[in-house]
Design a protein around this nucleic acid. Structure first.
Lengths: 137, 137
DNA sequence: ATAAAAACGATAATCATTACTATTTTTATC
DNA sequence: GATAAAAATAGTAATGATTATCGTTTTTAT
C-alpha cells in the first residue's frame, strides 16, 4: 500500500489528478469537486475527499493545512516545499525564494528527543495586494 | 479593543486563566472546560471557547493550530515561540532549543510581496517515547 | 438604585471531513 | 468473453471542533 499500483483504476481519480496537475493555486477539495463535476456530474464530494486523501497518503500529491477552520488545500507537487498565504486576498502560492536553513535539523541538535521534520507556513501580502494598498489613500 | 481592560470582569475567565497559567502541556479547550468545571459546575463549553478566543485575540494567551482535525491547543505564553508535537504520545511542548534563524526575515529578502511572519511546528519523538522504543524488541 | 453593555449557559448551527451502505466498476481467473 | 472477489462510487448520515443565537444574569458607569 505504498504506491499508486495498489489502487484500482478510476476515471474519477484520473480526472481529479488531471485537474490538480494544471493548477498552481492549491485548490480546496470543494474547488476540485466543483470543477471535476463538469466532466462527472454525479461525482460526490466524498469521492473527491477519499481520492485526495489516498493520493496524499501515497505521496503522490501534497496536502496543506491552513490553520483555524480553513479547509485544507491540495498541491500537485508532493515534495516538501514552502508555502505563502496572503493576508490580503487569501491566495496560497509556492514560496519561491532560495534555499532556507533546515530548522528541523538545527533544532534536533539541541533537543532531548528526536526531531525529524517541521512544517512552516509564511504569511504576509502578495505583490498584487501590496500594489493595491499603495494605490489607495 | 486591544487590551484586557476592554473586557468586563468575569469569574469564569479568571478561572480559565488561572487554570491555564499553571500548565505547560498546552491543553485543548475541552480539557480547560473539564477542569474549570470543578469550580464552576455550570460553565459551558461555549463560554470556554469564547474566553479562550478573546484572550488569544487580545494577545494574552497563545493559540496553536495542530493541523488535520486535531483541536487547537492553548498556551499561557502569548509570545511567539516554537512548539514540538510528539508522533508517539501526542504530547505538545515548548521547543527549548537555542535561537533559530528567522525564516520569515530570510524569506522576505527574496520575495516579491512582503512576508511578515511564519508559523512552524516541529515533529518527532519525545525523550520518553525514544526511551520506550529502545526498550522494546 | 438603575440601566446599558457585556458575559453567561444552553443549545442550535456551521463547516470540514470521515464513515456507512447499497450499487457499480475494475481486474484477475477461468 | 463469463464471472466473482475486491475496490470504488454516489448518496447520505455522522462526527467533531468551533461559532452563533438568545433569553437570562452579571458587571459597571452614572
Amino acid at each position: 500500500m505504498t504506491d499508486i499500483s495498489t489502487l484500482k483504476k478510476s476515471k474519477q481519480r484520473d480526472a481529479i489528478l488531471a485537474f490538480l496537475s494544471n493548477r498552481k493555486d492549491h485548490p480546496t477539495a470543494d474547488t476540485v469537486y466543483m470543477n471535476v463535476k463538469n466532466d462527472f456530474p454525479s461525482i460526490s464530494l466524498g469521492t473527491v475527499y477519499r481520492n485526495l486523501t489516498q493520493l496524499s497518503d501515497l505521496g503522490i500529491i501534497g496536502r496543506i493545512n491552513m490553520g483555524g477552520t480553513l479547509p485544507d488545500r491540495f498541491d500537485p507537487n508532493p515534495e516538501p516545499h514552502l508555502h505563502f498565504l496572503c493576508r490580503g486576498c487569501g491566495c496560497l502560492s509556492d514560496l519561491d525564494v532560495g534555499p532556507l536553513p533546515d530548522l528541523a535539523a538545527l533544532a534536533d541538535e539541541h533537543f532531548d528527543g528526536r526531531i525529524d521534520s517541521c512544517v512552516t507556513l509564511f504569511y504576509g501580502y502578495c505583490e498584487k495586494c501590496l500594489a493595491m494598498e499603495s494605490g489607495l489613500s
